[in-house]
Amino acid sequence: MNRIVSWVALFAVAIGILAGTWAAVMMENLRLLTYLLLALALFLFWIWRKMNVIIDERLVLIYEKTAVRTLEISILILFLFSVFILGIGHWEDAPALLDQGFAMIQNILLIILVFIIFGFYYSRKFGVFDE
């Protein structure tokens, strides 16, 4: 059943992306087309993951390490970029940039919060805390 739902979802997403691409081309909407190309890249990544029939422990380890490193580097880059935006907003007296900088900081804090929640969850799951 899950396999059928999965293939139906795969088919639906493919149709959606194709229809969206066609609409974007017809409307000459370059931004929408860019988003759809990104969606297509994600879709191809998803298919590639599905084709990897064997997900063994080494692959899981690679994915885990990749995910953690991606999170760390992404947060660092986002943080530095938001500080840069805030700095420019402050020195050039641009309130719009300050707002965007604070919004980025909020997003970073949200990601860190989710990271901490997952950290607690897995700490409990793998028995770090005493019962």
């Binding site: 064997i54 063994d56 422990e57 080494r58 692959l59 380890l61």
Partner: peptide, 22 residues
């Protein structure tokens, strides 16, 4: 063993230490 060929290769080369189960 139910793993990928690359995993066997990595273990043989000493680049990856298998889990206790494996």
């Amino acid at each position: 063993l139910g793993v990928t060929r690359q995993t066997i290769l990595a273990i043989e080369k000493g680049k990856y230490d298998p889990s206790l189960e494996l």
